[in-house]
């Protein structure tokens, strides 16, 4: 793959919200690349900043939030664009699919109106018949019968509404889609359908997909690469199979151990809670919960190290760089119940 295939790239991207206690660093220096036709899974606990990152890519952040660093779409510096130019990318170039499909369609508008509106916004010259033909084609592809074209959103089930959301995005043929937990609110059978649709979508129109999820099973099934996010940072990113087989970062490892399957005999979890993003821990953000923490982890953020194409930010990956004496295992008091609460 050449560099020209890169659809979206972020370099040191930071997003923070102003609060009364100070800025919440929801995304704190994130770098990644996404190529055409590629799916990147973004996993992490609730509150680690993955949804914020997804929204930031489309400039859908709430008022009072700030973004800096570098974000490029097909080589263009997105953050340097005017607001109107940035917003003009939405729909036709960048699209987003959300977690709760039930509330994402305008309850007062027919499905037909949603499609006509979206197409007409991006291709003003399209005639009525052409609009209809194209909407019908997309609907057919997602398995919604043409007779439902005049229906209202409330006449569809959650799974159908999510398919409609995908169809609406698909009709505009975007180059990049953020799917923010698109199947979390749906049952397992519908989940499989939705993932299948997303898969078809990228093979048909070569869309790059950022799939945000907390379900590692979905990543294993649907993603080429995976990025593991913790406390606003990507701690490990690489080929999904490689990362799952051979996690470099203790957080990834612990996360994988915490998944539930039929062979699970006891539940594993990571003690403690995700850190406060107003005042994140010093050094490596994960050190208070890390079973492998060393003295160095408390003071200095680990360098990002590449091995076999996978990037990980952990001192274990670069033992040679640790200052002498700082590789002592971190001694700390047991995490008390009070800390966990």
């Amino acid at each position: 793959m050449s560099a020209s295939d890169v659809v979206v790239s972020a370099e040191g991207l930071r997003i923070w919200y102003g609060t009364e206690r100070g800025p919440v660093r929801a995304v704190d220096g994130v770098s990644f690349e996404l190529r055409a036709g590629e799916t990147l899974g973004l996993v992490g606990e609730s509150g680690c900043g993955k949804s914020t990152l997804g929204r930031g890519l489309l400039d859908l952040l709430p008022e009072g939030s700030k973004m800096d660093g570098s974000l490029r779409y097909q080589g263009h510096d997105v953050l340097a664009m005017s607001t109107s130019r940035r917003h003009a990318l939405r729909g036709s170039d960048l699209a987003m699919i959300f977690q709760e499909p039930l509330t994402r369609l305008n309850p007062l508008m027919r499905i037909r109106e949603h499609f006509e509106e979206a197409l007409r916004t991006h291709e003003p010259g399209v005639g009525k018949d052409e609009l209809r033909r194209r909407s019908m084609e997309v609907l057919r592809r997602i398995g919604i019968p043409p007779t439902r074209y005049e229906s209202y959103p409330h006449e569809f089930s959650g799974g159908m509404r999510q398919r409609l959301m995908i169809a609406l995005a698909l009709a505009l043929r975007p180059a990049f889609i953020v799917a923010d937990e698109p199947t979390t609110a749906l049952d397992v059978l519908v989940e499989a359908q939705i993932l299948e649709m997303l898969h078809d979508l990228r093979s048909e129109i070569d869309t790059a997909l950022l799939l945000i999820t907390h379900n590692l099973g979905i990543v294993a099934e649907a993603c080429d690469r995976v990025a593991v996010m913790y406390a606003g940072e990507i701690v490990e990113i690489g080929d999904a199979r490689d990362v799952f087989r051979n996690p470099r970062h203790p957080y990834t490892r612990e996360l994988l151990r915490s998944t539930i399957s039929l062979s699970t005999t006891g539940l594993h979890y990571i003690p403690g809670a995700p850190p406060d993003l107003v005042e994140p821990p010093s050094g490596c953000h994960f050190h208070p919960r890390c079973p492998d923490a060393m003295t160095v982890c408390t003071t200095t953020a680990p360098p990002v190290v590449e091995s076999a194409g996978t990037l990980a930010a952990c001192w274990l990956q670069s033992p040679g760089a640790i200052p002498a004496g700082a590789e002592e295992p971190l001694r700390r008091r047991e995490i008390s119940d009070a800390d966990e609460a």
Partner: peptide, 8 residues
Amino acid sequence: EAARARGI
């Protein structure tokens, strides 16, 4: 929000 994401 969804409409904004569609570029409306």
